[in-house]
């Protein structure tokens, strides 16, 4: 019973995701106005040759701040996991 259900769920997922190759054409993106803007003006506006970098740090710089903070958050989480414990701090949370 459960196996059939799992198989059905996976089938539906596969079918749903198959809409991507069916309706999006690879190699020929549909609308490109935003990226055309970036390619056209990115070099002059950000004065950088690498358009990807100028997007990462200029047009979408705020995302990159978030991205760095994600890494910082993960590092803080890891530090929290392997932290040194105080004396007598043990407590059971059951």
């Amino acid at each position: 019973m459960k196996k059939v259900l799992v198989a059905a769920i996976f089938l539906v997922w596969a079918a749903g995701l198959c809409t991507i190759p069916l309706f999006l054409s690879f190699g020929d993106p549909a609308a490109t106005d935003m990226d055309t803007y970036f390619i056209r003006t990115g070099q002059a506006a950000a004065a950088a040759n690498n358009i990807v970098t100028s997007i990462v740090f200029d047009f979408r710089g705020f995302d990159t701040l978030g991205e760095s903070v994600v890494l910082f958050t993960a590092v803080t989480g890891v530090a929290l996991m392997f932290r040194a414990r105080k004396e007598g701090e043990e407590h059971e949370d059951e």
Binding site: L5, V6, I9, V12
Partner: peptide
């Protein structure tokens, strides 16, 4: 995870 995927599949249908 299976419940989550199942609900997504149901919603899709």
């Amino acid at each position: 995870v299976l419940w989550y995927m199942g609900i997504t599949a149901l919603f899709f249908i």
